[in-house]
Structures are given as C-alpha cells and as structure tokens.
Design a protein around this nucleic acid. Structure first.
Length: 466
RNA sequence: GGCGGCGUAGCCAAGCGGUAAGGCAGAGGUCUGCAAAACCUCGAUACAUCGGUUCGAUUCCGAUCGCCGCCUCCA
C-alpha cells in the first residue's frame, strides 16, 4: 500500500516516492523566536512530528531540518525594546521552544539551523541570483524580480499579473518595480544589526533564510517542505522562486500545509484573550499528553476548533487507552485458554490504522480502528479466554500507536513508598473484609490523586486525570 | 474584488458513488462488598439548503446560505 500525501503544488493526493530510496529529507518551517510559541504553532509542529514519526515507522530514514528565525523585524524591535542584544533576546525564546517540544514529546530534528548562523550562505545565494539577473537594487536593498521567474505563482495560484492594492504600494517604504517583488537582502540601518558579507552589508530577507538553509542541509532538491497554510503565500512561493532561479533545479517535491487552529471559532489573538501557550494550559492543570492527543487527533488539513470541552473529551479518550494498557500490564507470562482470535483482530486493526495513515495521515480514521480494538480486547479479556499471543498482539498495536502518535499508553510515574504502603495496607484490610478501613484508605488515596480499581487480578492504580 | 477551505448526531470527528467508523457526554442493564474500570443495549430514515448527473449521492456537478483562512508579518 503506497503512502499518499496531499501536495499543495498539485492540489491533489500524490503517491509519495522519495528522491533517494529509503530516505526522506524534510524541511519544516519553524518558529520566529520573538515570543513563546502558542498552541496554534504547536498544532503544526505536532503534525510535522507525526509525519516524521510515521515515515520512520514505515521504515524511512528521515533527515529533518527546522529553522529558527532569530533575526527579523519583530525580533529586532523586541530586543531593542527590551534593551538587550538580539542574541540575548532570542536565546530566551529558543530555550523556551526546546522546553516546550520536550514537554510535548516532539522528536528532535536532525538540524535546527538558526538564521544568524547561516548569513554567509544566504549572501552566497543572493550573489548567485545577482549573477543570473534575478535581482535589482533599490535604496541599498536587493529585490527579487518575479518577472524573471516564469513559474511564479504556481504554488499559491495567485494571479501575478494583477497587482495588489494601490494603498499597499504607496505606503511601502521601499521602491520596487512590481509590488510582489520581495527583498532578498535588506540595507543596513544604523539602529539595526547587520552583517558584512560578500554582497555588502545588510541583513537577510525572510524568505532567503529558508532557501539557503534548506538547500545547504538537505540538497538543492529535497522531498517534503511543510508549514502552516499561511506560509503558502508569500513565504513558500518566494522560496521556490529564489531557490529554483538560483539552481535551475526543482526545489521541493511535496509541499504540505497544515490548517489553522482557531479558538471558540475565532482566530487566536491576544486582544481577544483567547491566546494560549503551552505554559498557559499547564498552569490550568491540563495534561500535556492530552494536549498532544487532542491537537493530533483531527486531520491536519481541517481547521481545528480548540475548546476546553474538546480538550477534556480528548483527555477522557486518552484515559481509555491508558486503562487498557494498565489492564494488559496485569497479565503475566502464559495464558493459553484462548485461540488467538484476538491476535488476528489486532493485526487487522493495525493494518486498518496504517492504511488510514498512509492515506494523507488520516489520524482520526486510524484512531477509529484503534478504539475498535480497545473494545474487542476488553471483551475478550472479560471472557478469560485468551492466549499470550493475543496479549502480545494487542500490546504491539498499542506500542505502534505510541511510536507514531508520540503517546505511550499506560505511562505513569512511579509511586512513592508511602503510597505503596497504603495500597498494601488497604489490600490487607480488604482481604479481612474490613471494608470501612479499606474504603477510608481508598478515599485518602483519591485525595492524593491516586485512583484504585479492584480487579480479579488484584488492585490496579492510576493517577486521577484532571 | 481574487484565491482556497469548511458545514456529518448534544459535543468532537472519520467516511467521499451503493445506502452513516470511532471518541466524549447521556439513559437502562450486567459485573463488583461498595466503587471505579469494563461489557451489553439505546442515538442521525440521515450527512447546511435547493437543483442536476446517475439504476443509486453524504460522497460528483451547479447555485444559495453560513463560517473561516490567504491576498501585508503570521504555524
């Protein structure tokens, strides 16, 4: 079964075949480090992580680069407002970003290129464009002339002949031949950081950064480039233009874009008070595993309407997965009363999951198969007729889910000795049918956030979900 | 104005030509010392509306309504 991805370039699902057999080169547009990333950003990063994990699960070696934009108008302005250097300012948010992706269980990419570390490469790329006649100068800045690149507008399907509004042109501080021409190199200003390079002093335009770093790390043509839908134009369109104009080669083979997250049906914005970072959700007591589950459970090309009710629903769904894993953990080595029917079902459900994921990462569909298996497993376990093979097969599916979705079911921190002792004492009381005492201990543990469940295999504990 | 997306049960959400997966919430029941968990049963004559194509449409085409995004920095 072939993997198919929706390709923004072709506007259809294309079969995925990497350039180099067995290897995928992936560039995921990363954060501009001027502030904490918000859950909308993480919706995209989490989806990209799922893409990476899925490709790896399918046996590909993945080389991923995610850029950190540490020089642009906002970072410069904010650093100045804070009265510190650009580097000191951005380091704060770079550190926060890495903490956040750790919190969410996002796998580390192979490369996290920082724009300020690749200035010579960008200058070299601009130099190449100059040689080839794609660039003109205006007031010390260098602009890409889109009229010199015939393919311009293919990705975003914008009509380049039609100009943008007159007001836009008049208000612009730079002079350009065509309002859609864009800066590849910005003239130095006294109060802004700039670099001395082979093409003169200045700082890079936004788009040139991704072109230079992606081609340097992944090759002039690579497999997948991702980002949010808002990046389609102008960012990705411009990347294509300058990259292909410089090399004469196709830049990216599959362009994939994630739809936005909205909150209560509205765009997230600080002024509306519906702007959330990961830290905001953690402060409200939400489980980060549930946040991950929630943001990844909706198909990436559909807008995700974030609500706290929805997050609570995801938390409950995830608890069901955790409960099954915990129940499976109660069974030991050998069970041979069954026929292996459950194992067959497990293989079938895993197959279904993978087929849905093959189909443009249909996570919601895949979860449907998984929960079918959850019910089938409980039902079989209730009958008591199952084999070790059955248990192993289900565990394997849960583990596959864990690897791909980045959430291992049944994960829980260990208990401290005092809690363990209380559980033991309750079991003793209960075995003596001293229910008053056992219930008292159970209530006490519940107050400490530990839920006990009595089963034929003995007592099972878990942490109370928020 | 141009381009693109979305509208499926109380909520979330798959399916996308053959008669509606899954999750959450809810009701009843089984099990349990009691709970919890789990299991069983119950929910859309129906997929925004109206037309069209088809033997047959939620699924294709057109129109309408509603919501959202992009066209300027943005995941």
């Amino acid at each position: 079964m072939a993997i198919r991805f929706y390709n923004t370039l072709t506007r259809q699902e294309d079969e995925f075949v990497p350039l180099h057999s067995g290897e995928v080169r992936l560039y995921t547009c990363g954060p501009t480090v001027y502030d904490y990333a918000h859950i909308g950003n993480f919706r995209t990063y989490l989806w990209e992580d799922l893409l990476r994990r899925f490709l790896r699960f399918r046996g590909y070696r993945v080389t991923q680069a995610m850029n950190l934009t540490d020089v642009d108008d906002k970072t410069i302005a904010n650093a100045r407002a804070a009265g510190i250097s650009l580097e000191d300012y951005t380091r704060r948010y770079i550190d926060a970003f890495f903490e956040d992706i750790e919190t969410l269980g996002i796998e580390k990419a192979e490369h996290y290129p920082r724009a300020t570390h690749f200035i010579p490469d960008m200058a070299r790329l601009v130099g190449k464009l100059m040689e080839r006649g794609h660039v003109y100068e205006s007031r010390g800045s260098l602009y890409f002339k889109i009229a010199t690149y015939p393919g311009y507008g293919r990705l975003s399907r914008l009509d380049t002949a039609a100009g943008v509004g007159q007001a836009r042109i008049d208000s612009d501080e730079y002079e350009r031949d065509n309002p859609r021409d864009f800066a590849v190199w910005k003239a130095p200003k006294d109060d802004e950081p700039f670099w001395q390079t082979e093409i003169g002093p200045g700082r890079p335009g936004w788009h040139i950064e991704c072109s230079a770093m992606s081609m340097k790390l992944l090759g002039e043509t690579f497999d997948i480039h991702t980002g949010g839908v808002d990046n389609i134009f102008p960012h990705h369109e411009n990347e294509i233009a300058q990259s292909e104009a410089a090399t004469g080669k196709p830049f990216v083979r599959y362009w994939m874009h994630a739809a936005h997250l909205v909150v209560d049906g509205e765009k997230m914005s600080k002024s509306r008070g519906n702007f959330f970072t990961l830290r905001d959700l953690a402060a409200r007591g939400y489980d980060m595993r549930a946040v991950r589950y929630h943001l990844v459970s909706v198909h990436y090309r559909k807008p995700l309407n974030f609500t706290f009710e929805g997050l609570a629903q995801s938390q409950a769904a995830l608890a069901r997965l955790d409960d099954l894993a915990l129940r499976l953990g109660q069974f030991g080595a050998s069970h041979t009363t069954g026929t292996g029917d459950l194992a067959a079902k497990a293989r079938e459900r895993l197959q279904g999951m993978l087929e849905d994921l093959d189909h443009d990462l249909n996570t919601a569909g895949a979860l449907g198969h998984l929960f079918e298996l959850v019910r089938e497993t409980h039902t079989t376990l209730d009958t008591g007729r199952f084999s070790t093979e059955d248990l192993e097969a289900v565990r394997k599916v849960l583990h596959a889910f864990g690897r791909i979705f980045g959430i291992e079911p049944g994960q829980r921190a260990d208990l401290d000795a005092e809690i363990e002792d209380l559980i033991r004492r309750r079991a003793e009381a209960r075995s003596q049918r001293n229910f008053a005492e056992s219930d008292r201990i159970r209530d006490d543990l519940l107050r400490r956030g530990i839920v006990l469940e009595d089963t034929p295999q003995g007592v099972r504990w878990k942490r109370k979900s928020a």
